[in-house]
Computed example of a mutant assay.
Amino acid sequence: MLTGKQKRFLRAEAHHITPIFQVGKGGVNDNMTAQIAEALEVRELIKISILQNNEDDKHDVAKALAKGAKAELVQLIGHTVVLYKESKENKKIALPR
């Protein structure tokens, strides 16, 4: 579980990142969450955009993405989700205590 200070730090780090995944009309599926989990192992912090044609509630989509990838939901701002998961082999981000 992330503290408020750690979430603030991660939001600042994610500011300049561009979204690498998009959730469209099909919604969240197992294949997508598997790919997101792999991307998190490499990058630790990613952005995902929720397209306008997605019919699900954006809060539900964000929770489903975080749960499926076993990651922490850092932020949901507009239609952009920021996820963080500490990497086992490629640790790059040092979180504040």
Results as ranks from 00 to 15, higher is better:
residue 49 S to G: 11
residue 66 A to Y: 04
residue 83 L to G: 06
residue 44 E to A: 00
residue 30 D to S: 08
residue 16 H to W: 13
residue 54 N to S: 10
residue 7 K to P: 08
residue 37 A to I: 11
residue 71 A to D: 05
residue 20 I to K: 14
residue 44 E to N: 01
residue 23 V to A: 00
residue 77 I to Y: 08
residue 22 Q to N: 14
residue 67 K to S: 06
residue 60 D to N: 12
residue 96 P to D: 08
residue 4 G to Y: 09
residue 65 L to D: 03
residue 95 L to V: 01
residue 95 L to N: 13
residue 52 Q to T: 15
residue 41 E to G: 04
residue 80 T to E: 13
residue 59 H to V: 09
residue 27 G to T: 00
residue 35 Q to H: 13
residue 41 E to S: 04
residue 76 L to P: 00
residue 73 L to K: 02
residue 53 N to D: 14
residue 54 N to L: 13
residue 73 L to T: 01
residue 44 E to K: 00
residue 13 E to Y: 12
residue 26 G to E: 06
residue 85 K to M: 01
residue 44 E to I: 05
residue 58 K to D: 14
residue 37 A to H: 10
residue 68 G to I: 05
residue 73 L to Q: 01
residue 44 E to C: 01
residue 26 G to A: 05
residue 96 P to C: 07
residue 12 A to H: 07
residue 33 T to D: 02
residue 95 L to R: 12
residue 76 L to H: 07
residue 45 L to M: 04
residue 52 Q to S: 15
residue 79 H to V: 02
residue 90 N to G: 06
residue 87 S to D: 00
residue 17 I to R: 15
residue 19 P to A: 07
residue 52 Q to A: 15
residue 55 E to M: 03
residue 38 E to H: 09
residue 21 F to I: 06
residue 48 I to K: 01
residue 7 K to M: 15
residue 35 Q to C: 10
residue 89 E to T: 09
residue 2 L to E: 01
residue 43 R to P: 00
residue 62 A to D: 06
residue 88 K to P: 06
residue 83 L to V: 11
residue 45 L to S: 02
residue 89 E to K: 09
residue 6 Q to V: 08
residue 27 G to Q: 02
residue 61 V to I: 15
residue 55 E to T: 13
residue 35 Q to F: 11
residue 66 A to T: 06
residue 18 T to K: 13
residue 67 K to T: 05
residue 44 E to L: 00
residue 1 M to P: 09
residue 8 R to I: 14
residue 49 S to H: 12
residue 32 M to A: 03
residue 47 K to T: 05
residue 9 F to C: 12
residue 81 V to A: 08
residue 25 K to Q: 11
residue 13 E to L: 14
residue 97 R to N: 12
residue 36 I to K: 01
residue 49 S to Y: 10
residue 62 A to R: 02
residue 93 I to T: 03
residue 22 Q to I: 11
residue 44 E to S: 02
residue 26 G to Y: 00
residue 41 E to T: 06
residue 70 K to H: 09
residue 30 D to W: 00
residue 7 K to S: 15
residue 75 Q to G: 04
residue 17 I to T: 08
residue 54 N to I: 12
residue 33 T to R: 00
residue 19 P to W: 10
residue 17 I to K: 15
residue 56 D to Q: 15
residue 84 Y to R: 10
residue 27 G to P: 02
residue 49 S to D: 14
residue 70 K to N: 10
residue 88 K to E: 13
residue 20 I to Y: 10
residue 41 E to R: 08
residue 56 D to L: 11
residue 28 V to R: 00
residue 35 Q to S: 15
residue 10 L to V: 11
residue 88 K to T: 14
residue 3 T to K: 13
residue 28 V to I: 03
residue 55 E to H: 09
residue 94 A to N: 07
residue 38 E to W: 12
residue 14 A to Y: 11
residue 13 E to I: 07
residue 30 D to I: 10
residue 24 G to V: 02
residue 77 I to R: 04
residue 42 V to G: 02
residue 41 E to K: 05
residue 94 A to L: 12
residue 69 A to D: 05
residue 23 V to M: 02
